[in-house]
Design a protein around this nucleic acid. Sequence first.
DNA 1: AACACGTGGAC
DNA 2: TGTCCAAGTGT
Length: 353
Amino acid sequence: MDAKHSSSPAPLDGGPAARLLAWYDRHARDLPWRSRPGEVSDPYRVWLSEVMLQQTTVAAVTPRFTAWVERWPDVASLAAAPDEDIMAAWAGLGYYARARNLVKAARAVVAEHGGRFPTTEAGLRALPGLGAYTAAAIAAIAFGERAVVVDANVERVVARLFAIETPLPAARPAIREATDRITPDARAGDFAQAMMDLGSSICTVKKPQCLLCPIAVDCRGRAEGIAETLPAKAPKKARPYRHGTVFWIEHKGCVWLVRRPDKGMLGGMRALPTGPWVDARPGLADAPGQGPWTMLNETVVHGFTHFELELALARTDGKPENDSAGEWWPIADLGTAGLPTLFARAADLLKRV
DNA sequence: AACACGTGGAC
DNA sequence: TGTCCAAGTGT
């Protein structure tokens, strides 16, 4: 081959990709969405797991994934399910836009792709909720495409491997380019999963286990003694504090639940009524009824990604004053309502009063 | 580009 | 105890 047109050739020993794949062959985690060796991956299961795993730990996802595929074993059954069933099934997993986009994507696959997932990275990228990472991951894992898969694990491993000292997010283009250079033509899906397994078990944020690392020999960060400090990150902003009041309206063993608007926090989820979340304690302003309200002594404090919320708790007997959309839910069955964790915790305090 | 968007576990 | 962080995406 003309050297002028050859991309940087693989090292004679196969380079880090070969070492990593050999390690993966012996140490890959057995996870319910992974195919057995020699079996074809089910794109539906790969897609579902990848979406569930966005910003969410394997430990949190595993039981939810298993229950989900038992209830909806394929994309057609999911596409046919009512929105509220899907949203309730997602309750507690967080980042509820993922569930809203999951429904849209399932229905798009059925309506526009004959019930089969697009098989290319570009085709997958066009589905709701599939960004650069997830589209590449599914293309590689489910369809064997050579896609460059970069998640937070890969960012960390690659920043260390190449001793990239630029802080995130500015380092992203360089990290992606370096990942491209070491991604093999064959087994790109295994390579991606191997990088993520390595990042979660050995090349960890704190105290990386370099003595166990199959590519320590390739690692410039280790050679320079700076591996654990990488990747550098831009400092983050302080989290503001906000206040709100949540309202418990009880009538004949039922409690009044509303559905939150699709946009914004906890969008589309069933919830207890609550006024706006603001800088100062709102008390009974924006109460959905004239009461009389009883305030509980306890409050619920809940940390979100970008602010912390303290919720006062108010309760009353009778009907809501306005006829805003909602439903009476049996208090004994509150566990099936699919409340986000914040409201589930508030309800636990309110239902015992 | 920077911010909105959940939750629970680890230290 | 408070901080950091996890298989990111949409705007």
